[in-house]
Design a protein around this nucleic acid. Structure first.
Length: 174
DNA sequence: CCCTGATTCGC
DNA sequence: GCGAATCAGG
């Protein structure tokens, strides 16, 4: 299975929605969580825009257990991968002004199921915050931001009716 | 042990 | 570009 445009879109959506790589892989199908994580990194949207450092690895390179098929042709000696800041797609300034009230700006710790998780500003900036308004039912964003986030929906001619296969009815509701 | 994401690197 | 293997941590 390849990463079609639609599948990448779903990946982005789920990742930003907070689903784990394994969950995303299960939903997409045909890919492992490693594939999902790899793709996420290639897309530059790791960290989900928030400085939620899960782990930190040291640049080791003991990777020799792989079946090296007699590397006769010397491969290109790769150095360290260039790291990019990986900025999070932020709304346009005008929209940000319209959609973010100072009273509703949310901190990372203040986010919950009912707060819009739309990022405002640069993740590394101190002024970075989230929209924080009440999110639409079943969605991680408020009504206005949900429209932006879920825009590339009507790419399927098949579903002429409104069949929002994008929203997750309920997750871990026990 | 289960899980998580992060990184490397042969393909 | 892809993703298994691996690492590092909760």
């Amino acid at each position: 299975m390849s990463w079609t445009d639609e599948r990448v879109e779903q990946l982005k959506q789920m990742w930003m929605d907070g689903l784990s790589a394994s969950q995303i892989a299960a939903r997409l199908g045909g890919v492992t969580r490693n594939a999902v994580i790899g793709k996420v990194h290639r897309l530059g949207l790791s960290g989900r825009g928030a400085p939620t450092r899960v782990t930190r690895r040291r640049p080791a390179s003991p990777r020799t257990a792989r079946a090296t098929t007699a590397s006769t042709t010397t491969a290109t000696p790769r150095r360290e991968a260039a790291k990019k800041p990986a900025p999070v797609p932020a709304p346009e300034p005008e929209e940000a002004e319209l959609l973010s009230d100072p009273a509703t700006q949310a901190n990372l710790l203040e986010l919950n199921e009912q707060t819009c998780k739309w990022p405002i500003g640069d993740p590394g900036d101190e002024n970075f915050h989230f929209c924080g308004r009440r999110s639409a039912p079943g969605l991680p964003y408020c009504a206005a931001h949900a429209k932006m986030a879920y825009q590339p929906l009507p790419s399927r001619r098949e579903r002429k009716d409104k069949a929002p296969q994008r929203q997750f009815p309920n997750r871990m509701i026990g």
